[in-house]
């Protein structure tokens, strides 16, 4: 079911392959809390972050260590061969010989694809510019499966749907499960028409509105994204938009009992901290689920010993 050599984008995943990853994550989740799993003892994961990242990098490190493996960090790019003008291809070829798998985050789109062409070991894309970030999508799907349900799902994607790469690949993946998707965003941050057309071509129902109140009562999942201040030339315009999309406990009075609220984090002020204590807030657990999902991918790509 899972014969991939690299994980570069969600485009290459079938529903069966996603299900296989989620099932493996489920098996490994107890070990993500600190159980004794030595499946990847003696294996090394190299982390090549050419851009700053906290949670993605640490979550990969945790995933590797929870399975008994070790990690290598590239360190600040200034101090490495890259500053001397070495090509990414050469860096990948060299470091690929030190490790059993590579994780790469790089500011250029397509860099993970390039890495996969030169690497002797599996490559996992942890974000290539405005391109893909497949492990985020997989952990989002895992969260939905754990905390809600993937079948007959009604989900609202809220916020910046134009530039946010995570919502685009999540929407594509949800289309594989036939989800009913509602898009709620300010007019200037609507999802690109091409993506909507692709989703509809896959048979997904896509609704679009600017008013969250129209849909909040009927949905299973509310996926909130950050609206970036820099997208608005006029700060007053930003304030107006940001306020109109803020999730508060007041808004949650009329929602379904089992509604879950997700957010890829970091959040700024789109979710009121008061919401954190409600049963609907799952965004911190969502962040934790990155560990079992990345454990599953590492296990499936590197192999290693059987799970104890």
């Amino acid at each position: 079911m899972f014969e991939k050599r690299h994980v570069l984008s969600m485009r290459e995943f079938s529903r069966e392959e996603i299900d296989a990853v989620l099932a493996m994550a489920d098996t490994l989740e107890p070990y993500a809390y600190g159980g004794n799993c030595n499946s990847l003892t003696g294996k090394i994961l190299a982390l090549l972050f050419f851009e700053p990242s906290t949670r993605t990098r640490m979550s990969f490190e945790t995933a590797m260590m929870r399975m008994g493996g070790k990690t290598l960090n590239l360190g600040p790019a200034e101090g490495s061969a890259i500053a001397k003008g070495e090509s990414l291809a050469d860096t990948i070829r060299v470091i690929g010989c030190y490790a059993d798998a590579l994780v790469i985050r790089h500011p250029k789109e397509g860099s993970a694809q390039l890495a996969s062409e030169f690497s002797p070991v599996p490559v996992l894309n942890a974000g290539d510019g405005a391109g893909h970030h497949p492990t985020q999508t997989l952990l989002d799907l895992y969260t939905i499966r754990k905390e809600s349900h993937l079948d007959e799902l009604s989900i609202t994607l809220l916020g910046d749907l134009k530039y946010g790469r995570t919502v685009h690949s999540l929407a594509y993946a949800l289309a594989l499960y036939g989800a009913e998707i509602t898009l709620v965003s300010p007019p200037s941050l609507r999802m690109p028409d091409q993506i909507k057309a692709d989703l509809e071509a896959k048979g997904t129902t896509v609704r679009e509105t600017g008013d969250l109140n129209e849909v909040i009562e009927e949905i299973d999942v509310l996926y909130v994204t950050r609206i970036q201040r820099e997208r608005f030339p006029d700060p007053r315009e930003y304030q107006k938009v940001a306020r109109s999309y803020k999730i508060t406990t007041d808004l949650l009075k009329k929602v379904k009992d089992d509604l879950i609220i997700m957010h890829p984090l970091p959040r700024v002020d789109e979710i009121d901290p008061e919401v954190d204590g409600t049963k609907h807030a799952v965004y911190f657990r969502q962040s934790f689920y990155g560990v079992p999902v990345r454990m599953a991918l590492l296990k499936m790509l590197i192999g290693g010993d059987d799970i104890d």
Partner: peptide
């Protein structure tokens, strides 16, 4: 911002998604 527009030792690659009208998709950045 595509990696194929840098000094990396690769050639640009485009998948032909449609021949008429022509629709090409960059293998690297899509």
């Amino acid at each position: 911002n595509c990696i194929s527009n840098t000094d990396e030792p690769i050639k640009s690659q485009f998948l032909v998604k449609n021949k008429n009208p022509v629709v090409l998709r960059c293998l690297y950045c899509e």
